[in-house]
């Protein structure tokens, strides 16, 4: 679901685009998968997780909701393409099947693969990318190095689907060839807990953040309703939360409008 601009392009612009030159407001078409949360979609370039590339999710403490965040998007994809599979490689033990079914995932299309080391994890993804018909690959690989991540990137391009890698938060300081890096942390404020999702690296200006996630009774995540403009998002969050936690989109660039 790429984001296409509705304005017609002049012929001169079309010629420039063939050379690979684009205006910053007409962004190059990126193939993405919708994240399932419209507010997160607006933060990411191309409105979603990039297809054919590696997305890293850096987690400080496992179990704060990082997996259900992802599975929400993937269950939508599985419903749209019922014949495709989702491969989960080397998860931490004891995923609960009833929870997966409640999220809307059909467990018959989800093979789990247990590997013993990094080499096997990358080999699995490469083998499965030759088979095709996969919605995504989800890998838990804290110790993957840059070469392994590049191989995952090549596999993702071959299979035309995203690869998600879960790693620990301290890897955020290391360099990585992933196209999108999201850091998920939790903060205790006033006895209420918020998750903070920060875009560490993306194909565009980085540093965007969503702070207003909180646990609600119904689901572990609740994102603010869809906001068309980032500045109005800032205002809304200003009204809701105390000042220390209102810094959304702390980057130096001015808002680019809808992306």
């Amino acid at each position: 679901m790429a984001s296409l601009n509705s304005q017609p392009i002049s012929t001169a612009e079309a010629a420039w685009q063939r050379f690979g030159v684009y205006r910053a407001s007409h962004q190059a078409e990126l193939l993405t998968i919708s994240t399932g949360w419209p507010a997160l979609d607006h933060l990411l370039p191309g409105d979603g997780y990039p297809v054919g590339a590696v997305t890293e999710l850096l987690v400080e403490c496992p179990g704060i909701g990082e997996v259900s965040l992802l599975l929400h998007a993937l269950s939508n994809q599985l419903c749209t393409h019922p014949s495709r599979r989702l491969a989960i490689i080397d998860p931490p033990p004891a995923l609960n099947a009833p929870a997966l079914i409640q999220l809307g995932i059909d467990c018959r299309n989800v093979p789990f693969i247990a590997c013993r080391n990094d080499g096997e994890r990358v080999w699995c993804v490469e083998q499965m990318s030759t088979a095709g018909e996969f919605v995504a690959f989800v890998v838990w690989g804290d110790t993957l190095d840059t070469t392994a991540l590049r191989r995952l990137q090549l596999a993702a391009e071959k299979a035309v689907c995203p690869v998600f890698v879960y790693r620990h938060l301290y890897r955020a300081t290391e360099r990585s060839p992933a196209a999108l890096r999201l850091a998920v942390t939790a903060h205790l404020v006033d006895g209420h807990l918020h998750q903070r999702l920060k875009v560490v690296k993306c194909r565009g200006p980085a540093g965007a953040r969503i702070d207003s996630l909180m646990i609600a009774d119904g689901k572990p995540w609740r994102l603010p309703s869809e906001q068309r403009d980032l500045s109005s998002c800032m205002r809304a969050s200003n009204e809701q939360w105390s000042e220390e936690h209102c810094d959304v989109a702390g980057s130096a660039f001015s808002t680019l409008g809808t992306r």
Binding site: L95, P111, F112, I113, A114, R116, A131
Partner: peptide, 24 residues
Amino acid sequence: PGHWPAVLDRLRARLGHDAVYWLH
């Protein structure tokens, strides 16, 4: 499509038969 059984065989041959499983 249709290569999945062959890939499944290769995964099971290298990692062991129990390494690939489904939940229900």
